[in-house]
Write a protein that binds this DNA or RNA. Structure first.
Length: 549
RNA sequence: AGGGGUGUCGCCAAGUGGUAAGGCCCCGGGUUUUGAUCCCGGUAUCGUAGGUUCGAAUCCUGCCACCCCUGCCA
């Protein structure tokens, strides 16, 4: 799983794995983890950290990992998301040992609720939303008990049954835990356990149920029913843990999963809130959840980011309880690392500038080059060369910055895999815009048989003007312009240049190959919009150490 | 009457009383017909103030900063 050039990376060993290793030495025989997405949206790169952690641990310790859909609230959930989540998990390289649904445990959960009521640990409350909020108190003042708190067990049982039977209006009654209205932990102030929802229908259970358990109620029991030993979740649930434990302790359940929290993955320029992503799609800022600029798993896949680049990133950033905001550079490093050794190289010119070789005799010739300088087993291709070519506009300059290694008037530059040329004349239009370069070439400098001893300033890529294939190339950037746009308004945060289209030319061999992605030399890694398409978009640029560019 | 969590190089992150790993970034240099890749080399006294100790990033005390919590979302 490690990338060839990154083989030094050590096996993961974080505080969670240390706990598990210790538990396996005595307390437990097997480790069972779970990844519990709510099927109300697409997975994004933030989820991949939890996926890699949970599935990775199961793999490393010979345990199991369950993909559990946390479908406890029908609002916003759909089967479409269920399907997409499964596909994304698989694409990332993981196969769940089991798939479960919290909704399939509704019957068992209902029984746990009854048990709590029977033990006087839960009650049916008739407070309306507003009043309940008011009576909960604030961060610094204690709450006050509901007037229904001392309702009799019989009445609670009766009312809860009525709720379940659909005899109660939505919002009229809820089931609450009876814990401590004065607890400094707000989660312990008699939290709601069940609420009534008549609409929409549950995507999986239809109209079987009209009462639904809250996250807090469902989580621990679903974990227990799934046989989970270590319930790994993100830091914001840290102060839910006392409730998680309380709910498990007050019911006759032998199995006791334990919750461990770790910090979320944040990446510069990636805004991962579901609300934000939904809005991008809804308002048409992107072409869909799988737009190649989206930070969703399917978006990254469309962009050409390989699964192992994502896994590599998750492994590299580690697992701790510290907030982490990873630099984009780190992400890009992993993407390049995954692509570097496996993509064929090719030449494409994105902003063409015509070059005419005035001393070239004949119509043209065919040159040869390996598909990859370090991987000869990838084979070689032929490329047509002729008297008219295109080079990149910014590979020529009349007023070059210091240390410029490209073409200047009167200067020499090597056309990669071909000849050294000299710029003899610059043709401009009325506006003074460079139109065309007239150059002469040196036949004795032909690549592979050059013993002229001539030295050029640098090397430049090119495409035959006659035989180059026209291609449409999209240069992609992040959707937001600020490294951290959380809390900003969408309008001001959006990057207006997230997709710039260029019309250019690629060497013909590119279109003759079935490869879905190439490295266009000196430009970056590019992926086809669709198989066989002549539309490409840039997955990531090459690292560029040219300072004044 | 608030509670919980976190503070080690620009970004991640090891380290758990014996004198600061590693990666990314950055800066030098080498190889190179991609200013790519690859290869060498360089860069921190641990939020802060005290204390304990022969010895502290690690133990104790105070302070400071940041994050989370007042949904019948997850």
């Amino acid at each position: 799983m490690l990338l060839p050039h990154l083989a030094t990376l050590q096996v993961p060993d974080d505080f969670i794995r240390k706990i598990i290793r210790k538990d396996l030495r005595g307390r437990l025989d097997e480790v069972v983890t779970r990844f519990p997405p709510e099927p109300n949206g697409y997975l994004h790169i933030g989820h991949s950290k939890a996926i890699c952690l949970n599935f990775g641990i199961a793999e490393e310790f010979g345990g199991r990992c369950v993909l559990r859909y946390d479908d406890t609230d029908p609002v916003g959930e759909s089967l479409e998301f269920v399907q997409a989540i499964k596909e994304d998990v698989n694409w990332l390289g993981f196969e769940p040992d089991a798939v479960s649904h919290a909704a399939d445990y509704f019957e068992a959960m209902y029984d746990f609720a009854l048990e709590l009521i029977e033990h006087d640990k839960a009650f049916v409350c008739s407070l309306d939303f507003e009043t309940m909020r008011e009576m909960r108190g604030t961060l610094t003042t204690p709450g006050r008990p509901s007037p229904d708190r001392e309702r009799s067990r019989e009445e609670n049982l009766e009312l809860f049954a009525a709720m379940r039977q659909g005899e109660v209006e939505e919002g009229a009654l809820v089931l609450r835990a009876k814990i401590d209205m004065a607890s400094p932990n707000l989660n312990m102030r008699d939290p709601v356990l069940y609420r009534i929802k008549r609409t929409p229908l549950h995507p999986r259970r239809g109209k079987d149920w009209c009462i639904y358990p809250t996250y807090d109620f469902a989580q621990g029991y679903a974990d227990a029913l799934d046989g989970v030993t270590h319930s790994l979740c993100t830091m914001e649930f840290d102060d839910h843990r006392p409730l998680y434990d309380w709910l498990l302790a007050n019911v006759s359940l032998a199995h006791r999963p334990c919750q461990i929290e770790f910090s979320r993955l944040n990446i510069e320029y990636f805004l991962l809130s579901k609300r934000f992503l939904q809005r991008l799609v809804r308002e048409g800022h992107v072409d869909g959840w799988d737009d190649p600029r989206m930070p969703t798993i399917c978006g990254l896949r469309a962009r050409g980011v390989p699964a192992d680049a994502i896994r590599e990133l998750c492994e590299r950033v580690g697992v701790t309880r510290q907030e982490q905001r990873i630099e984009l550079k780190m992400f890009n490093f992993c993407v390049r690392g995954a692509l570097e050794s496996r993509l064929r190289r090719a030449m494409a010119v994105i902003e063409p500038l015509k070059v005419v070789i005035v001393n070239y005799e004949g119509a043209g010739e065919v040159l040869h080059a390996d598909w990859h300088p370090q991987q000869p087993e990838l084979g070689a291709r032929e490329m047509p060369f002729g008297p008219e070519l295109y080079i990149e506009r910014d590979d020529f300059s009349e007023s070059p910055p210091p240390k410029y290694k490209r073409l200047v008037p009167g200067g020499l530059v090597r056309l990669r895999y071909a000849y050294i040329i000299r710029c003899d004349e610059v043709i401009k239009d009325d506006q003074g815009e460079v139109q065309e370069l007239r150059c002469s070439y040196f036949p004795e400098t032909k690549s592979g048989s050059d013993n002229s001893g001539m030295r050029s300033r640098g090397v430049v890529h090119w495409v035959s003007a006659d035989e180059g294939e026209s291609v449409e190339v999209a240069l992609l950037e992040e959707l937001i312009a600020e490294p951290d746009a959380s809390g900003q308004h969408l309008e001001s945060a959006m990057n207006p240049h997230s997709r710039e289209i260029c019309n250019g030319y690629a060497e013909p061999a590119v279109l003759a190959m079935p490869d879905t992605a190439f490295q266009f030399e000196r430009l970056g890694y590019f992926t086809r919009a669709k198989p066989g398409s002549r539309e490409f978009h840039r997955t990531v640029s090459l690292r560029d150490s040219f300072k004044t560019r």
